[in-house]
Design a protein around this nucleic acid. Structure first.
Length: 538
RNA sequence: GGGCCUGUAGCUCAGUCAGGUAGAGCGUCGGACUUUUAAUCCGAUGGUCGCGGGUUCGAACCCCGUCAGGCCCGCCA
């Protein structure tokens, strides 16, 4: 069974109505690591739906979290906002400075500016959660009831955190962080509590009171999380392995939520996504790939497959080079399979059966529109990459595919894929070994690898091409003909041609590539090659 | 120091919860295709399941220990 179905099955034992929740702090640009959080949740929700449960998927944007530091992409003016909530400060403009105008006129906040492009990406990959703005939830009193319980039972909660996390909380610790006179959560000391007010003194020596019902502050993270579970009614939540460790925030959360009068959600810990060869994703180190950037390279269903095919506890390495080709081609192969027919085979071992079921489950989850079946495009990524490089216009690409019988009609899906493919080819993610390189001068090493027979075929080929009409069909006929004229297998002609033109033993289909190039260039190259051969053998 | 996760074929992983003849894909190699030679199809190759003990008729799987990598115990998916 697919991992999402396993989770759905666990949920079904607990009841019929479920809320699957995910949450991210919009402190900077979102990256594909965040995509795992939200896709994991989305897949569980889909699986629960398929299992006949009444399920809702929510995404909490943690706009109540404070700005922790002036990140590299921010200007020094942000110093004044440290400790201020992300949903209450202006967004950075292109120079990294606060965009006051938009903030005052449209209420455009720091949190909004990072959230918006992510939501755009979610739309493309078929994820449509109910979005909950955390800061607004505080302001509208959603947390009021549970905040009261937390403050009333401060000692129980303190005991819980100290026992489970093993750290000692400061004596003036209190389960409510009030906003100070300047709007910061930092350096505020709680001096008293009488519901609904928490009294405080801030770092500037100012005294004040914070109303739990109006969002004039927030619960600290370890309480904020279980409080969300409570008021939203969360029954299942995937989270990163950092939260999942013993003593981590889930450990304390599952007890605190009970103090607050609710049951903990079903947990699912997942591993990180890293960039191949670059380690864990880190915005400050600059080695991130954003969801939008990823979508410019890969179709959404393939991005979904990446998450769907890996069990959550497996780390994922996102490779924007050759790994992408492997992944995309795997998608094509899987899309072309008939899993139901495969499962009808009575000879299957238990393991083989499980493997087929998991593959079928992963493909189901990869579909952008829930319930639809992923369609094989009949064109592999490799092949399309080749065509995209050798054909200057899209129409030529389609013509070639139709002519070769690879496809009957061009689908919108293929148009879309070609667009991304061209984008990928132009990006610096495109791997060297996928590039089609025709030699600019004879590759002497490769030519010496040819035996005399092959060399003579090459000489003959060079002559044939001189009188060849310069189109793919005619060139394509010339190559095998060069061998046939000497009563040899066409294989040898290809071998010789690859050695001369690409300096390799094998390569992609030559004729269409040559047809795209200037005849003179190729003929000059071949004549240089034959000259070299004749001189070298003497 | 305490705890969690991972370690199975060259690579990516399934199989561990319910112990029962070591599985898949990729790669590699071979064959076929007398114009789709990075394509496609067919076939083959490949593993002291990190290591050492224990339980068992039987262990990749359960138990104990150990090594290696990653992570958490500071509000970083």
């Amino acid at each position: 069974m697919h991992w999402a179905d396993v989770t759905a099955q666990a949920l079904s034992h607990k009841g019929n109505k479920h809320i699957v929740s995910t949450g991210i702090t919009p402190s900077g640009e979102f990256h594909i690591g965040h995509l795992r959080e939200i896709l994991t949740g989305d897949m569980i929700a889909r699986a629960a739906h398929n299992a006949g449960l009444d399920v809702e998927f929510v995404f909490i944007v943690d706009t109540a979290d404070p700005l922790r530091k002036v990140y590299d992409f921010l200007g020094p003016e942000y110093e004044q906002f440290i400790g201020h909530q992300l949903g209450s400060i202006p967004a950075p403009n292109d120079e990294g400075n606060p965009d006051w105008k938009r903030f005052e006129q449209e209420g455009w906040t720091y949190g909004d500016s990072f959230l918006e492009p992510f939501l755009e990406a979610l739309k493309q990959i078929g994820v449509r959660p109910r979005i909950i703005n955390n800061l607004e939830s505080y302001r509208s009193g959603r947390f009021a009831q549970l905040s009261k319980i937390a403050c009333d039972r401060a000692d129980d909660i303190r005991e819980c955190i100290e026992r489970i996390s093993g750290r000692e909380l400061p004596t003036d610790w209190f389960p409510w962080s009030p906003l100070d006179s300047k709007g910061s959560l930092d350096g505020v000391k709680v001096t008293g509590y009488e519901y609904p007010l928490v009294h405080w003194v801030d770092s500037h020596g100012v005294n004040g009171s914070s109303d739990l019902r109006k969002g004039e502050g927030k619960l600290p993270w370890r309480i904020d999380w279980p409080a969300k579970w409570g008021w939203i009614g969360v029954t299942c939540e995937p989270f990163g392995k950092d939260h999942g460790a013993a003593g981590g925030s889930y450990s304390t959360g599952r007890e605190i939520v009970q103090i607050l009068g609710h049951e903990p959600p079903h947990p699912l810990t997942y591993e990180w996504i890293s960039l191949k060869g670059k380690g864990a994703m880190s915005s400050s180190a600059g080695n991130t790939v954003g969801p939008i950037e990823a979508l410019q390279l890969v179709p959404p269903e393939i991005l979904r497959l990446l998450v769907a095919k890996s069990k959550p506890n497996k780390a994922i390495e996102f490779d924007t080079g050759m790994g992408l080709v492997t992944l995309a081609d795997e998608f094509e192969r899987m899309a072309a399979r008939d899993f139901d027919a495969e499962l009808e085979n009575p000879e299957l071992s238990r393991r083989q059966r499980v493997q087929i079921e998991d593959a079928a489950g992963a493909m189901k989850m990869a579909a952008v529109e829930a319930g639809t079946k992923a369609q094989a495009t009949a064109v592999t990524f490799r092949h399309l990459a080749l065509l995209a490089q050798t054909k200057s216009t899209d129409d030529d690409v389609w013509a070639s595919l139709v002519q070769s019988g690879a496809l009957e009609a061009v689908t919108p899906q293929l148009h879309d894929r070609l667009k991304r493919m061209r984008h990928w080819i132009q990006s610096d993610h495109f791997p060297e070994e996928m590039k089609v390189n025709i030699c600019t001068e004879p590759d002497t090493g490769a030519l010496r690898q040819l035996d005399e027979l092959e060399q003579s075929i090459l000489v003959h080929l060079s002559q044939l091409l001189q009188h060849c009409k310069w189109n793919a069909d005619d060139i394509g006929r010339c190559i095998p003909q060069a061998a046939k004229d000497l009563d040899q297998s066409p294989k040898l002609a290809y071998k010789a041609a690859y050695a001369a033109l690409m300096g390799a033993e094998k390569g992609p289909r030559l004729a269409p590539i040559l047809a795209e190039m200037k005849k003179d260039t190729i003929l000059t190259l071949l004549s240089d090659c034959t000259t070299f051969i004749q001189n070298d053998t003497e």
